[in-house]
Design a binder for these strands. Structure first.
Length: 695
DNA sequence: CGCCGTGTCCTTTTT
DNA sequence: GGACACGGCG
C-alpha cells in the first residue's frame, strides 16, 4: 500500500493520531499523500463513511475519488469526497430547518445575485451591482452579517452597501434561497450555535482531510474546527506559495493560526518535486523568492536540467497565438522531445483571464488542432441550460422568484415586463412569492385582465410538472418525461426562433439533449452526485434536479480526451502538462493592474501600500502556480501591443519575466534590458499622443 | 402590451 | 463578441 512513497510522504500518511499539517510544495505528490492516507485510516480501523476529504473544485473531487478508488477499491465509495460547498449543502439539507430553511431551498448563482442586488439597490447598472456583490461576499466570508457590516463600515459608501445587504438577505430568505457564501456561513451558524447539530456532525467525522488548505477562508476554517472538535482529527494539506484566492476571502492566517490553535500539530514538509525539470523549477523558485516565507521550504527535482525556459515576444494577441501554436506544432514534430509526450493532451496554454482564450481558440481552429477550454464559461452558464434549470428550481422550490421570472419567459408565452411588474408589486404587497401570488383570489384586480388566464395556466402547469417529476423514477422514464416536457413548452422551436443562425440554434438544442441525457443518467444512479455519497439507486427526477446547482461540467472525467487545454491560471491549479505555454505575461495582466497609483507598475523603489504589496504577492504566487504546471518544457510569452477596449496600446513585459532570472544564453536578450528599453518607448509614445491630443 | 432589433458598455481570477 | 438598456413596431 505504501509502496513508492518517500520518507516525508510516508510520515504524513502514517501520522493518524492527531492534527497534521502537510506543507506540500508544487508537484510534491499531495494527492498521493491524501489518497494513501485515506487508505491508512481505513487500515487502522476507521469506517470509510466516517472519513471526509474536502477539496475546492468539483474537478479535484472527481480526481480524488477516482484515485482513491484505484488505490483502495470498493471501500472508497463510502468515503465522502466533495467540495466545501457540497458538504455545506449536505449539512443544510439535513439541519437547515433549524434556521427556517426548507430542505428544498434554491441556490442562487452569481447572475441571480447580481439581479437581486440591482433590485434591492434600485440600480440598473450591472457594474455597480457587481461591486456590491463583491463587497457583500467578502463580508460574508469574513463572517459578518448586515448589522455587523454596517457597524464596521469605514465610509458612507460601505454603509450604503451594508443596508443593501440587509435587504438582500431578507430577499434571499423570502425566496427560500441561499448564495454560495451561505453554503459555508449557514453551516457554520448551525455548528456553532446548535450543540446537538455540532455533536451529530462531529460524530460523523472520524477524520477530515482538507486539500488546498491555503485557500480556505475564515468561515471555512471555523467550519473545519467545529467538525473536527478539540481532538483535531484532521489532515490539512496545502502550500502557502500557491495561495491564489485572497480575493475570495482566503487568508494565510488560517495557516498561521493552525499551530497556535492546535499545539500538538504535526507539521510535515514535502520538498521533493516529481513533476518538473530543474530548469523549470529554478524559474519557479526565483519568481517566488521575493515573497515572505511562512514556512520556508526548498523544492528540488531529480528529473535533470531539461529544456531551457523560453521567453517569446509577440507583436499582438494574434501573433502571440500563432507563435504558441507554432511551438506546439514544432514540439509535436519532435524537435524538442523526440520520444513521447507529444500528443495534443500534453499541451496547455495558460492565461490570466477568461477572455484571453479567444485568439488562441481561433488560431487552434484554423490549425485544425482539437482543444478544450476549461475554467471558462461553464456548461451550466449557457442560456439554454440556465433556462431548463430555472424550471427545475421552480418545481422544487415554488418560492424561487428569480427562477419563476426566467421560467415564465423562456420560452415566451405572451407574459411580459408589464404584467410581471404588476404581479411583482402585488406579491410584495401581500408578502407572497410570485408563484403564490398566481393563486391569490385578488390577483385579477392587480394585473391586466388579459394576462390573468395566462398566469393561472402557468401556475397550474408548474404544479402538474412538479407532480410528474416527483413520480418519475429511473433513467428511461426520466428521459421520456424531459423530452415530453420540452415538447410541451416548445423549447426546440423557441431556440430556432430566437436565433437567426441555424447552426447556433442546433448546437444549443444539442446541449439541451445532452443535458437531459445526463440528468436521466443520474436518475438511473449511473453517476455519483456532487455530495460524494452513494448514488447507486434509482432516484426521482425531482431529487436529481436538487443536486445540480453546484456542478459546472457534465463530465468530470474529461482528461482522457486527446486535446490541447486552454485554461485560466486559477483553474489550472492542481493540474500538470508536459508542455506549457504561459501567455499574456504582460504588466497590467500578470501582475494584474495593481492600482491607480501604480499605473506604470515598475516603481518598485517607491513606497507601496500594504494592500498593493499583498496583491502583488498574490499575483506572484499565481505566476508561480503557472510555471509549476509544466513538466518538461515551458514557454512564457508577452505582447508588445495589446487590445484595450477598442484600441491597441503599447504593453510591457511582466516584471515576473525578469524575476525568473533566466540564464543569459537561454534567451537572446536580457528581459531587464528589454524592459528598460520598452519603458522608454512607452513613455515616449505617451508623450507623443498627449502632444497630438492638444492641438 | 409584448417582442425584437440596434447601439453602447465593458472584460480578473470561482464555488 | 457578448450582455444589457432603449426605442420602434406589430
Amino acid at each position: 500500500m505504501s509502496a513508492g512513497l518517500n520518507l516525508a510522504q510516508l510520515e504524513a500518511v502514517n501520522y493518524v493520531q492527531g492534527p497534521c499539517l502537510v506543507l506540500a510544495g508544487a508537484g510534491s505528490g499531495k494527492t498521493r499523500v491524501i489518497t494513501h492516507k485515506i487508505g491508512r485510516l481505513i487500515d487502522v480501523g476507521l469506517e470509510p463513511k466516517r472519513i471526509a476529504a474536502i477539496t475546492f473544485t468539483n474537478k479535484a473531487a472527481a480526481e480524488m475519488r477516482e484515485r482513491a478508488k484505484d488505490l483502495i477499491g470498493k471501500a472508497a465509495k463510502d468515503v465522502t469526497v466533495c467540495t466545501f460547498h457540497a458538504l455545506g449543502v449536505r449539512i443544510m439539507r439535513e439541519d437547515g430547518h433549524v434556521l427556517g430553511l426548507k430542505p428544498q431551498f434554491s441556490i442562487m448563482d452569481a447572475d441571480d445575485v447580481t439581479s437581486i442586488l440591482k433590485d434591492c439597490g434600485g440600480t440598473t447598472d450591472a457594474a455597480t451591482a457587481r461591486q456590491w456583490q463583491w463587497t457583500i461576499s467578502l463580508w460574508k466570508n469574513m463572517g459578518l452579517n448586515a448589522e455587523q457590516a454596517a457597524a464596521q463600515a469605514p465610509d458612507d459608501n460601505a454603509r450604503v452597501i451594508a443596508r443593501i445587504m440587509g435587504l438582500y438577505e431578507e430577499r434571499l430568505s423570502a425566496y427560500q434561497s441561499v448564495d454560495f457564501d451561505d453554503l459555508i456561513g449557514m453551516p457554520l451558524k448551525l455548528l456553532a450555535d446548535y450543540p446537538e447539530v455540532r455533536e451529530r456532525w462531529q460524530a460523523k467525522m472520524g477524520h477530515v482531510l482538507v486539500d488546498e488548505y491555503q485557500d480556505t477562508n475564515a468561515t471555512q476554517y471555523e467550519v473545519l474546527k467545529h467538525l473536527v472538535g478539540e481532538r483535531g482529527r484532521f489532515t490539512a494539506v496545502g502550500d502557502d506559495d500557491q495561495s491564489i484566492y485572497g480575493w475570495r476571502g482566503a487568508t494565510l492566517d488560517n495557516l498561521k493560526r493552525l499551530p497556535q490553535d492546535f499545539p500538538n500539530l504535526k507539521v510535515i514538509k514535502l520538498e521533493q518535486n516529481y513533476r518538473s525539470t530543474s530548469a523549470i523549477l529554478r524559474a519557479a523558485n526565483n519568481v517566488i523568492q521575493p515573497n515572505p516565507k511562512l514556512f520556508p521550504k526548498t523544492l528540488f527535482s531529480e528529473l535533470g536540467e531539461g529544456e531551457p525556459v523560453r521567453v517569446v515576444d509577440a507583436v499582438n494577441e494574434e501573433h502571440e497565438a500563432d507563435r504558441a501554436i507554432a511551438r506546439i506544432q514544432s514540439i509535436r514534430g519532435g524537435q524538442v522531445n523526440p520520444s513521447k509526450h507529444r500528443e495534443f493532451k500534453d499541451f496547455a496554454i495558460l492565461y490570466r483571464a477568461n477572455h484571453m482564450a479567444r485568439p488562441f481558440e481561433q488560431a487552434l481552429r484554423r490549425a485544425n488542432i482539437p482543444y478544450k477550454v476549461s475554467g471558462g464559461q461553464s456548461f451550466f452558464d449557457k442560456t439554454e441550460i440556465k433556462d431548463l434549470c430555472a424550471w427545475f428550481r421552480l418545481w422544487i422550490n415554488n418560492d424561487d422568484d428569480p427562477a419563476f421570472l426566467r421560467a415564465i419567459t423562456s420560452p415566451k408565452r405572451g407574459i411580459g415586463h408589464q404584467t410581471l411588474g404588476q404581479l411583482g408589486t402585488f406579491a410584495t404587497q401581500y408578502k407572497l412569492s410570485l408563484f403564490e401570488a398566481l393563486f391569490a383570489g385578488s390577483l385579477p384586480s392587480a394585473v391586466n385582465t388579459r394576462a390573468v388566464d395566462g398566469l393561472h395556466e402557468f401556475g397550474r402547469y408548474i404544479n402538474d410538472l412538479e407532480h410528474r417529476a416527483r413520480h418519475t423514477l429511473g433513467k428511461e422514464a426520466a428521459l421520456a418525461f424531459l423530452l415530453e416536457w420540452l415538447k410541451e413548452i416548445g423549447y426546440e422551436q423557441h431556440l430556432y426562433d430566437g436565433e437567426d443562425n441555424e447552426k447556433v440554434a442546433s448546437a444549443r438544442w444539442t446541449n439541451v439533449l445532452e443535458f437531459c441525457d445526463w440528468m436521466a443518467g443520474r436518475c438511473g444512479g449511473e453517476i455519483e452526485d456532487a455530495t460524494g455519497t452513494d448514488a447507486s439507486e434509482s432516484k426521482s427526477l425531482l431529487e436529481v434536479a436538487q443536486t445540480i446547482s453546484l456542478i459546472s461540467t457534465l463530465s468530470e472525467r474529461e482528461k482522457d480526451q486527446n486535446v490541447v487545454t486552454l485554461s485560466t491560471l486559477h483553474a489550472s491549479k492542481g493540474l500538470e502538462w508536459p508542455h506549457v505555454v504561459l501567455v499574456g505575461v504582460n504588466e497590467g495582466l500578470l501582475p494584474f493592474k495593481l492600482g491607480d497609483d501604480d499605473e506604470h507598475s515598475g516603481r518598485s523603489d517607491g513606497p507601496m501600500s500594504e494592500g498593493i504589496l499583498q496583491r502583488l504577492q498574490e499575483e506572484r504566487r499565481l505566476m508561480y502556480v503557472g510555471i509549476t504546471r509544466a513538466q518538461r518544457s515551458l514557454a512564457v510569452s508577452w505582447t508588445k501591443r495589446r487590445k484595450k477596449g477598442r484600441d491597441m496600446v503599447a504593453a510591457l513585459p511582466s516584471r515576473f519575466i525578469a524575476e525568473m532570472k533566466l540564464d543569459e544564453n537561454t534567451i537572446k536578450e536580457d528581459p531587464r534590458e528589454k524592459l528598460r528599453a520598452l519603458r522608454a518607448e512607452f513613455a515616449k509614445r505617451a508623450a507623443d499622443s498627449a502632444a497630438e491630443a492638444k492641438p
